[in-house]
Design a binder for these strands. Structure first.
Lengths: 220, 220
DNA sequence: ACAACGTACTATACACTGTACGTTAAGGAG
DNA sequence: CTCCTTAACGTACAGTGTATAGTACGTTGT
């Protein structure tokens, strides 16, 4: 009977549960709205309980990132190598679009963890099998990764801007207030720029450019 | 005599002074260490004084971004167009490396402001003059911009990781602890990956890939 | 069976953050 | 001189991550 204190029972927490709940929260309330206190509250636990499993917020972020990277599918082996490259890059982009927090997690922390290594292994293996020398394979891998990162980060950023009607209208008016005399090309291409910001076609356009450059470079 | 309160005299503040001081602070203490209170303190003023000139922190960020974009040089007119593209992209990257906060400012806010438009005008003009159709010019502009953004953001991120010897060593050991059986290519290419992360050569490699793809695509 | 121990969690506290709200005084206009 | 706009102020609020110390539980050794 001794109702000393309604202490939460032990072993209610574990890393996987924390990571999964953190991920859910990030998607529900946005990456910036995520906080350790909010996460602890969701788990029915004091904020400091999380420090039993993660040394700090950044380490939790790393765990969430690796948890997400596990969802990048493996490369199919029965495709020409440029299509394999497309498969990996599109898969990573699709995952970033589905989990916008992944973009920030990838951009703000170094790559580490087994699942991240698995994705790198897939792409690097494709490039090596395509006949690229070690240095070219490494450079190409970094190029492709940073392109996917930049393009998709930008896409997510623009999409989230469109969601806030106030910010979106202010952006439109600031665009329209540009001097057509000072910036003729920007004003002329404004519709195209707005239309080509984001979307599968835009992403594939840049990706194909990189692949075309790769093929043009190799004797093959 | 009435020494009521040592109020700071009026008109000590103006937008340019605030922006310049904010920029100095961001470079001195890092983008994350920057705070409105710190900025106000540096200016010898209460935190709320800043709200006379900027509606919130984001608007101040926008002003700092545009202030920095003014430092991107204009495109020289007497060059072949691929070199003009290189000039703009390298110029933007150089500025981002010199002012690391610019990377975050570009990635986290939409593009607006006259100086930002000026840079876009320069690159778009080059692409149009090179014979690209409006849509292709817009797509290429977005591709180039997102590549520069992603590549340079990543470069800055990696460089700052190297500065913290503790984080750097943890990254090395986590790399070395990867199973050579599970990730043979990653382990094999680890030295190349480490060497090709960042640097002018890596940036130009990707940029040249994009330009080669562009030239291969156009009849010319 | 009972005491000891490590561990999982809690409580409190600190030094911060951005900013909403209301106040006050300086400078210019009438 | 008075009035009014406005630049800067002070206070307060609801947050943040996390350092430090304390507490109750489950397991283990005897």
């Amino acid at each position: 009977m001794s109702d000393t204190k309604p202490r939460t029972p032990r072993n209610t927490l574990n890393p996987d549960l924390i990571v999964q709940t953190a991920l859910d929260l990030m998607e529900a309330k946005g990456t910036d709205g995520f906080s350790l206190r909010g996460l602890a509250g969701e788990l029915g636990v004091g904020p400091m309980a999380l420090y039993t499993y993660f040394r700090n917020k950044d380490e939790l972020y790393d765990a969430v990132r690796d948890h997400l990277m596990a969802l990048v599918p493996d490369v199919p082996q029965d495709l020409p190598w440029p299509d394999q490259v497309r498969f990996v890059c599109r898969g990573l982009r699709a995952l970033m679009l589905q989990h916008p927090c992944l973009a920030q997690l990838l951009a703000s922390r170094p790559l580490s963890g087994n699942e991240t290594a698995r994705v790198a292994e897939g792409l690097l293996g494709v490039l090596r099998a395509a006949g690229l020398e070690p240095e070219a394979a490494a450079r190409t891998h970094t190029t492709l990764f940073t392109y996917v990162l930049g393009a998709t980060t930008w896409e997510i950023q623009m999409a989230s801007e469109r969601l806030d009607p106030d910010a979106w209208r202010r952006l439109r008016t600031s665009m329209e207030s540009l001097s057509a005399h000072e910036f003729p090309t920007v004003v002329e291409l404004a519709p195209e720029l707005a239309r080509t910001t984001g979307g599968d076609e835009q992403f594939d356009y840049g990706l194909d450019l990189l692949l075309a450059g790769l093929e043009a470079r190799r004797p093959s």
